[in-house]
């Protein structure tokens, strides 16, 4: 593990109107690791990732990218990626690649195992293939930090595993992956470090071992249960009357 960080968040807060969705998030993302953000629905995962990408402006605190200086410092797969109908998978990637002088679409498609669908129109891709295309888009131009918002959502077990393996491959010596997921088993298998969000705050963060020993449980599910308790009801920030 290295002590270099690629991203530093300091007291980040975000509110929509009167609802505080994130409060006082301070965390540092080390370079070269796969970091997973987990937490119940509505805990602020997507908001946090969007704030890091710059898609939302935080209402407080600071977010600073501290990685190497490149053309495209951060790559991003949104929770619900949009692609234009009428374009093939390869054409779609060619567009993004042309913006950063990135790799050829074929090479990108091969990295996510989608080369067979290169000539297929995006509107005819299945949910899983769209997700893979989105991941290929996120790594265009080799950004040092790749952010994937629920990359395995809607994917079958094999594909989910494949996507996490791909993410783990992307995370290497000088590339960091920050992803959110509800699949605790896969997170356990692949993540180097976990950030647990609850009600817009960092409830815990660290390596799997530190979390397990701190909460006296051997699984991530145990950690989450210890923090969140009953999750059969969405707790809504600002929603308590």
């Amino acid at each position: 593990m290295s002590d270099r960080s690629v991203l530093r968040l300091d007291g980040v807060a975000k509110s929509f109107g009167t609802v505080d969705v994130l409060s006082d998030i301070s965390v540092s993302i080390p370079a070269g690791e796969l970091v997973a953000v987990i937490g119940p629905n509505g805990s602020g995962k997507t908001t946090l990732l969007r704030a890091i990408v710059g898609d939302l402006r935080p209402t407080g605190g600071s977010i600073s990218y501290t990685g190497p200086d490149t053309n495209r410092p951060i790559g991003y797969l949104p929770q619900r990626p949009t692609f234009r109908s009428g374009f093939t998978a390869a054409e779609t990637l060619a567009f993004y690649s042309a913006l950063v002088d990135g790799a050829a679409p074929e090479i990108l498609l091969e990295r996510v195992g989608l080369e067979a669908a290169a000539g297929r129109n995006v509107e005819n891709l299945s949910g899983g293939m769209r997700q893979l295309l989105g991941i290929a888009q996120a790594i265009v131009g080799d950004p040092p930090l790749v952010i994937l918002d629920e990359p395995a959502s809607g994917l079958d077990p094999n594909m989910s595993e494949y996507v996490f393996e791909t993410a783990a491959e992307i995370a290497s010596e000088d590339r960091t992956v920050l992803l959110s997921s509800h699949d605790l088993t896969l997170v356990e298998e692949t993540a180097d470090r976990v950030v647990v969000l609850h009600q817009g705050r960092v409830a815990a963060s660290g390596t799997l071992e530190t979390l397990s020993s701190r909460f006296g449980t051997d699984s991530l599910r145990g950690v989450l249960n210890a923090i969140v308790g009953d999750t059969a009801r969405v707790s809504v920030l600002g929603g308590e009357q």
Binding site: R50, D55, Y76, T82, R84, S85, Y96, L99, Q137
Partner: peptide, 15 residues
């Protein structure tokens, strides 16, 4: 708007 809107992603490109 709609599927023409990929600005969240474009933001991460030098554009």
């Amino acid at each position: 708007s709609g599927e023409n809107d990929d600005r969240p992603v474009l933001r991460t490109y030098p554009l």
